[in-house]
């Protein structure tokens, strides 16, 4: 297979699965030319609906993603899934296990699943996920589900790039609901209490409603709270209907779009600039040295950054 950017992009447009998979790899790896490639496809994207799915570990996000996908497919829609798991900070490797709960849709026509590691990119995960979303969009997916464990700030940033954010929790997870309060409360458009066949489901719903009540006083629009049992395929139809029917009011949508555009430019710029400077320093093998200097208290980080940037006369 000719792996030129042109060929890959043409392949994706022709709904070639391997081309899509490879284009994702190359963009994710930031192979030389990736920005130009993304630039070329940008204008052809924007038609897919992107749903961010997050929530506490063990809440059944992957199982729910699988069940929702089956429902979407049955409604004649095509689905792309991006399942994000953390990379190990020690080895840089990752164990990507979300597929374990999605076996039923591995071969379903119209479904494309991609597991993605956070790769410890400095704020870069968000952009990489956005890029993969666009490739799947170009690939013709109607709905793109982006699933992350809602623990790290990075991952919360990722779901924020979605058109609609769904927060999943389960009964008896007092702590989980605390976590939701802390992080994703402000961005949730829809709450799902999964594993609704377990005891304590009504309490969980009541908890969320109580939190919502508090926050609506501060001006945030209310979000529906639904119950599912994804394993038993109960309540899934309703969730799918809810997010397909969900319409953000025009003002809010506009505001969101503006924030997103602004953030994306800033994030690309930040990466570009820091990447540029870091690369030079790494070429000179000075980055590791700098880290060591800080560790040994020979230098402080402020001084190092100043040193790094002063050749540009910025500080």
């Amino acid at each position: 297979m000719n792996d030129s950017w042109e060929n890959l992009i043409a392949g994706v447009k022709n709904r070639d699965i391997r081309a899509a998979a490879r284009l994702i790899t190359r963009v994710e790896n930031r192979a030389p030319g990736w920005k130009e490639a993304m630039s070329r496809i940008y204008s052809r994207t924007g038609s897919a609906r992107v749903i961010g799915i997050t929530g506490s570990p063990g809440a059944g996000k992957s199982t729910l993603t699988c069940a929702m996908t089956k429902e979407l497919i049955s409604r004649g829609l095509t689905v792309g899934i991006i399942a994000i798991d953390p990379s190990s900070p020690f080895s840089g490797g990752a164990l990507l296990g979300d597929r374990l709960r999605m076996k039923e849709i591995f071969e379903t026509p119209g479904v494309f699943i991609r597991s993605m590691a956070t790769r410890g990119m400095l704020g870069g995960l968000c952009q990489a996920a956005r890029d993969v979303v666009r490739i799947l969009d170009l690939f013709g997916k109607d709905i793109i589900l982006v699933e992350t464990v809602g623990v790290g700030q990075d991952e919360i940033e990722v779901v924020k790039t979605a058109d609609l954010v769904m927060v999943v929790c389960m009964p008896g997870q007092g702590d989980g609901i605390q976590a939701i309060k802390a992080g994703v409360m402000e961005i949730a458009d829809l709450y799902v209490v999964n594993k609704a066949d377990m005891p304590g489901v009504d309490e969980a719903v009541a908890d969320i409603l109580a939190m919502l009540e508090l926050s609506t006083e501060t001006g945030k629009p209310s979000a529906p709270v639904l119950k599912t049992s994804a394993l038993k395929n109960q309540g899934v139809k309703e969730v799918v209907t809810a997010f397909l029917d969900h319409r953000t009011d025009e003002d809010r949508r506009q505001a969101k779009a503006e924030i997103r555009a602004r953030e994306e430019i800033l994030s690309l710029l930040a990466q570009e600039v820091s990447g540029y400077i870091l690369k030079q320093w790494e070429n000179e093998n000075r980055f590791c040295e700098s880290v060591n200097q800080v560790l040994k208290k020979q230098k402080d980080p402020y001084a190092i950054v100043k040193e790094m940037t002063q050749r540009f006369n910025w500080s």
Binding site: A21, T25, G92, G97, R99, L100, I113
Partner: peptide
């Protein structure tokens, strides 16, 4: 340091092939 996609037990050959391709 590798990224490992782990799909658990009872995979059919078709599932393995489709996973291998989508995950590149």
């Amino acid at each position: 340091g590798f990224e490992v996609i782990y799909t658990g037990l009872r995979q059919t050959a078709e599932q393995i092939v489709s996973t291998a391709i989508q995950e590149d």
